[in-house]
C-alpha cells in the first residue's frame, strides 16, 4: 500500500469518513449531537484521542506485538491503550477545561468504547499502513468524525424549530440526516479513494 499520507489524511476526512462510510462510533455521534457546543467539544477530544492512540497503537503493534508474535492480542492491547488515554484526557479536561468536562459528563468515558477509535486502529493494521500513513489516518479520522458530528449537531439545532413526526424524533431523524450526509459525501469520491 503506497499511498501518500496527505492523500490518506484528506480522504479519511471526506470520502472515507469513518462515520459516514463505515458507520462507526454511532453511539456518542447520535447522543451528543443535540448540542453544537458539546459536540464540538467531544469532537476535539476524539481528534486528540484518535491521533495519539493511533500512533501509540502503531508503535506497540509494530515493535512489541509483531516481534513477539502476539498479533492476536491486538484487540485487548488497543482497547487498554485507548482506555488509559481517555482517563488521561479526563484529568486534563477536569483541570484545564472544567466547562467542557461537565458538558461532556458521562460521554467522555464513553470515548473508550467509541468503536471508531478502535476501528481506525484495526484498519491501520489491516491496510498495513506505515507510521506516517497511520498518523495521517488517525488525525484525518478524528477530524472527519468531529466534522460529521458538528455538521449533524448544526442541522439538528436548526431542525429543532420545525415539526417532526413523533415516531421520527431523536435518533430516527438523526439517522436519516446521517444517511443523506453520507450520500452527499459520496459526491467527493472523485478526489481520492483509499479503500
Amino acid at each position: 500500500m503506497d499511498i501518500n499520507p496527505i492523500v490518506i489524511f484528506f480522504a479519511s476526512i471526506s470520502t472515507s469518513n469513518i462515520v459516514l462510510t463505515n458507520f462507526l462510533g454511532m453511539c456518542s455521534y447520535l447522543s451528543i449531537s443535540r448540542d453544537l457546543k458539546a459536540s464540538w467539544g467531544l469532537g476535539q477530544a476524539v481528534i486528540f484521542v484518535m491521533t495519539t492512540t493511533t500512533m501509540l497503537n502503531f508503535l506497540v503493534y509494530k515493535y512489541i506485538l509483531v516481534p513477539a508474535g502476539l498479533e492476536y492480542l491486538r484487540y485487548i492491547v488497543f482497547i487498554i491503550i485507548v482506555a488509559a488515554f481517555v482517563q488521561l484526557i479526563e484529568m486534563i479536561l477536569e483541570r484545564y477545561m472544567t466547562n467542557l468536562y461537565y458538558a461532556l459528563g458521562i460521554f467522555l468515558p464513553l470515548i473508550t468504547v467509541n468503536c471508531a477509535i478502535l476501528g481506525v486502529a484495526l484498519f491501520m493494521v489491516i491496510r498495513e499502513y506505515t507510521f506516517l500513513q497511520s498518523l495521517a489516518y488517525g488525525a484525518g479520522g478524528g477530524i472527519g468524525w468531529a466534522l460529521a458530528i458538528v455538521a449533524l449537531a448544526g442541522i439538528r439545532e436548526k431542525v429543532d424549530e420545525t415539526k417532526i413526526p413523533k415516531g421520527l424524533q431523536g435518533a430516527g431523524f438523526a439517522l436519516i440526516v446521517t444517511g443523506i450526509m453520507a450520500m452527499a459525501f459520496i459526491g467527493l469520491s472523485g478526489i481520492a479513494n483509499i479503500q
Binding site: 512489541i64 502476539l70 492480542l73 487498554i80 488509559a84 488521561l88 484529568m91 486534563i92
Partner: peptide, 26 residues
C-alpha cells in the same frame, strides 16, 4: 511467559503513566 510479561509490561506502563498524571494534574 513472554505473552504474560509483555501484556503485564504494557499494563504497568499505562498504570504508571496514569498515576503520574493524577499526581501532577489532580
Amino acid at each position: 511467559l513472554t505473552t504474560t510479561t509483555i501484556i503485564t509490561a504494557i499494563g504497568v506502563f499505562l498504570a504508571g503513566l496514569l498515576t503520574l498524571a493524577e499526581r501532577f494534574l489532580l
